[in-house]
Amino acid sequence: MGFGTLIGRRLLQILPIVVFATFVVFSLLHLVPGDPAIALAGDYATKERIEEIRKLYGFDRPLVVQYAVWLWQVLKGDLGISLLSSASVLDLIMQRMPNTILIAAYAFVIATLVGVPLGILAATKVGSRLDAFITSIASLGVALPSFWLAILLVIWLALDLHLFPATGARVFSDDPLGALKHATLPAMALSAAVIAELARQVRSALIEVLGSQYVRTLRAKGLGPVSILWKHGLRNISVTLLTLVGLLVNRLLSGAVVIEAVFAIPGAGNLVAYSALNKDFPVVQGVVFVFVLMIIAINLAVDIIGALLDPRAVQE
């Protein structure tokens, strides 16, 4: 099997995955009791108005019909409009997604730059005090809730030291420096758990490789520790690391939901949470749809890079 087949196979998966994921979300939103017409009728609802809204928006039709109508529109390239605010769902996503991608990507960079070296350091000094220190910091990082860390960061670095803004976001293409400044605290808070996870995984994978027989042979052959680590150790854990990174990126995207709320960032996570609470189906569906596409793309990229790193993966 070559690259072409690999990519082709991934692309073929898109349609069933999108249909499955959006249908599950659609059903979940409908199965949770509570009528969207009640939300739409608002604070001053009357019985008549709720009934009118049900008809107006087609909530009185069977679930499958409502879903099919949505899917048909999407296939025609129309993600619809928000039930709550009549805004175009596509516009909403286009406005929001860059903010989410920015903090997720920023957090990813921080996590890689910090987490991987920490893991390597711990693995090369197994059993030392440094190792114990890194391991306990990593456990703490996994256990700390990100929103709590976020609030601490705000109080310390924004409200006390005024180094970074406490809330909001800037559009990257308009003001790259401002955007990065606004994204720093959210990215730090978001990266903590990922740093911890990366450090732990790199450490254990590397310990396994460095303890294997062929590394002992390499050592016996007189190869230096740096060469062993870079040429053999890291290369061998790279596929494991890559798979892990793919999963962690997905986690960063979902973690953004909470972090965006704490920092008042108008991102996609904030959007989907608010819309789900208010039963704004078209928006939730639209965001889920885009997230599914993004995750498929990330997995595809992981597969391709994996194949480059380890040609056996393609041959299998």
Binding site: L159, H162, P165, A166, T167, G168, A261, V262, A264, N270
Partner: peptide, 18 residues
């Protein structure tokens, strides 16, 4: 007008001068 759903975050925006 900035729409900040989380009430405490809105307060922090005022405290921080934003």
């Amino acid at each position: 007008m900035r729409i900040i759903n989380e009430l405490n975050t809105a307060v922090r925006a005022v405290v921080a001068g934003e």
